[in-house]
Structures are given as structure tokens and as C-alpha cells.
Amino acid sequence: MKKTFQGRVITPGTCRAEALVSHGGFNTLASYQTPMLLGDKAVKCSDQNNPDLYQKSMLGKALCLPETIGSTTGGMALYTVCATGKQPACMLFSKHIDSLAAAGAILAAYWTDAKMPVIDRLGEEFLSAVKDGMTVEVKENGVVEIE
């Protein structure tokens, strides 16, 4: 059954992708560190502290998360991931976006050609409803549909 959520657009765009869900804070550096260093084509999450995502491919997925956590290299890591075409299809935040993720997403939007819509404030219910493998559709106006 399709469910619809309204969020706020941080960086615009549309996409349709498979959901990948982190219920805890997403540590951007810890998650992208190893795949970036080793050139892992599947971009598998290297954060051993994140049981939801560890060792799962993040490339091209609709990354659903509450917020990002960790080092202030997080935004820079996200920028690099986008500049090298290794980004998720979109990032969907249940909470208000944090400063590191916002910086990374906005840097990517202004300084790279990457397309990665970012929506925040989708609410706790969004993160409870969305499951790995579901199809997620992001509309231009911040509407997110899951099925």
C-alpha cells in the first residue's frame, strides 16, 4: 500500500529508487571511508557501529535516515561522493537536517553536476513506515511516496 509523506526540499530533484534505512544516526565519514579509499564500486557501508547498514551497498539507493552524526569531515565526504558519482539516489531525513549533511548536499548542488535530491523533516512516522527494499519516489515539491 502506498504511503505519502511531505517534507522540506533542501536540494531539489526527483527520483525513484530502492529504500535503504538507517534507524540510528548515519555516520557519513565512517560509512563512506572504506568504499572511497578502496574504490568499492558497490559503495558498501563501512560503519561497523551501524547494524542497519554495515556492509550493504548504498550506491543509487534512497537513503532514509534520522540525521547524520560524527566528524565534521562528513559534509566533505558527501561532497566527494557526489563529485565522483558514488552518491545515493536521494537522502531522506525524518528529522531536521543537521549542519554536516546540509553542507555536503548544498556543496554538491552548487559545485558538482550530481543529482541527489535531499528532503528533510519527513517525520518519525516516515522512518517507521519505510523498510529496506521498498520503492521510494521523490517528487519535486518534497513529497515522498513509499510502496
Binding site: G75, M76, L100, A103
Partner: peptide, 9 residues
């Protein structure tokens, strides 16, 4: 100071 990201700072 906010928790700024690398590059933004």
C-alpha cells in the same frame, strides 16, 4: 561555532 563541515569552514 556551528559544527561546520570541511570546505564550508
Amino acid at each position: 561555532c556551528n559544527r561546520n563541515s570541511g570546505i564550508i569552514e
